[in-house]
Write a protein that binds this DNA or RNA. Sequence first.
RNA 1: UGGGGUGUCGCCAAGUGGUAAGGCACCAGGUUUUGAUCCUGGCAUUCGCAGGUUCGAUCCCUGCCACCCCAGCCA
Length: 557
Amino acid sequence: MEKNDFIRNRIREDVAQGTLEQGVITRFPPEPNGYLHIGHAKSICLNFGVANEFGGKTFLRFDDTNPLKEDDEFVDAIQDDVRWLGFEWDDRLTYASDYFQQLFDFAVQLIKDGKAYVCSQTPDEMRVGRGTLTEPGVNSPYRGRSVEENLVLFEGMRAGEFADGEHVLRARIDMSSPNINLRDPVFYRIRNIHHQRTGDTWCIYPMYDYTHCVCDALEQISHSLCTLEFADHRPLYNWVLENINSNYHPPQIEFSRLGLEYTVMSKRFLAQLVADGVVSGWDDPRMPTIAGLRRRGIPASAIRDFCDRIGVTKQDNTVEMGLLDFCVRTQLEPAAPRGMAVLEPLKVTLTNYPDQGGEEAGEWVDGVWHQQNDELGTRKLHFGPTLYIERSDFEEVPPKKYKRLSPGEMVRLRYGYIIRCDEVIKNAAGEVVELRCFYAPDSKSGSDTSGLKPKGVVHWVSASEGIPALVREYGYLFTVAQPDKNDMAATLNADSMVEHTAFVEPAVVASDAARFQFERQGYYYRDPLGLSADVQDDTPVFNRIVTLRDSYKPTQG
RNA sequence: UGGGGUGUCGCCAAGUGGUAAGGCACCAGGUUUUGAUCCUGGCAUUCGCAGGUUCGAUCCCUGCCACCCCAGCCA
């Protein structure tokens, strides 16, 4: 179905009017100072999506104008993430730093045209001079420097004759503009620092407002899409392109950024979580980063679907996590093989199960990998006299309409037999530690002649053949839907990860599928990193991707 | 109390002069050896508020209100 958000409508109009000589060209311009998060995914899906839909192209352009904050680690991670999301840029991988020389030449011309000047105020002086939201700024005392002096000074800046902060290059626009961005914005600052890509070639670096629009023009971007907070910068974007010798002037179009409940989309804060060790890294499965979502097991297709469903507008929005969950389940439901795992084991002993002696006890029963998808085939499950069921599947005093096990009641063990709870064994503390049950030998799944009507179906794992595994359940990073941006640590969820020593059926562990549905529980992903880098252990680790939808509401009594 | 942006169901989001799409969530039924999936039905007399124009307004006009963004030599 054709999407009809305001941006695509606009592009459709431009295409219809035939004003786009090169076709639709977009760009995704991340700064390599952190990992991408799901908010970036919205922008990626928009930029690459639009280009794909209109037969155009998209540049992946790293905005590397501030060597103080940027790192190659992020350049690599960002490429991995975009690729993983399913998008390609072919040979259109660029860096703002590719254009440093051209940016410099344009700046020299601006100086010659009297449109820019070298300012030698201190940062404090400049801040005061800029005025406030309600008061106009005042002209810098250096605003009147001659073109010649500016040229000499700017060349000196480039030549490394000055210390950091001694001078900046400013645009000469309007210190009394109601738009603060137009009050003689800084275009170049001195940074005597090594740049990841240009090394020591430069010691002056251009600012975003000056760089971004020029790069867009040089790459002949047809539509420069960005988030709402840059709307105030649009007049400056336009000013630059109107005042340099450029024959290309892309329109900047702003859309609102993505808000997601129970998490935060601030790179600064996410970096803090990593630095503080609150999470294991940028790819911790609790993080809203692309790398985190990937390691949690969320398929890229689910993220793309999510981005399609949330749409693109200029309205502030905070999307419920439930929508992402829905998208994940939608992808996994038809595809993920089913398996059984018991997270909190409760021992069940079948008192009348034939004693075959020692380790020979038990039998192998058949189970399909997917009830609705025969192509996934079948697997064998071990059934024996000692089993584990989920603790939560037993209640001594069951609520009304309880469809699980309780004293005197029967349930079917999925793919196995019907059992009846005859005896509840407790420890000294009064905790239930074992159920002694009768099993109906003629109730085997698929050939049931018992005529019994169990209350429900329950998952289980053979005690002798089940494989111990570490299962990690992930919750929200925050305890409140909308964390306070000024005090995010206050509402951090201390229990955002719960670990279980679970028992998993052997066929699941042996399978090379990456994602499973553990029946009646949720979707799980075999963590590719395993237990940890420094622990040599074969224990399988499963991350819970998302729970199954659950409409069970325990009733009173 | 400067500038920019936004207000349509709990959350997203179409519609923009002809009498409120869709998705998620939720509720009620049906199927079911996953309380899952699947299927069926329900879910805004009302579009931030108040006036005005009009035969008719969510859509046009006026005024108000609320929320978001902006005072980095960050992006």
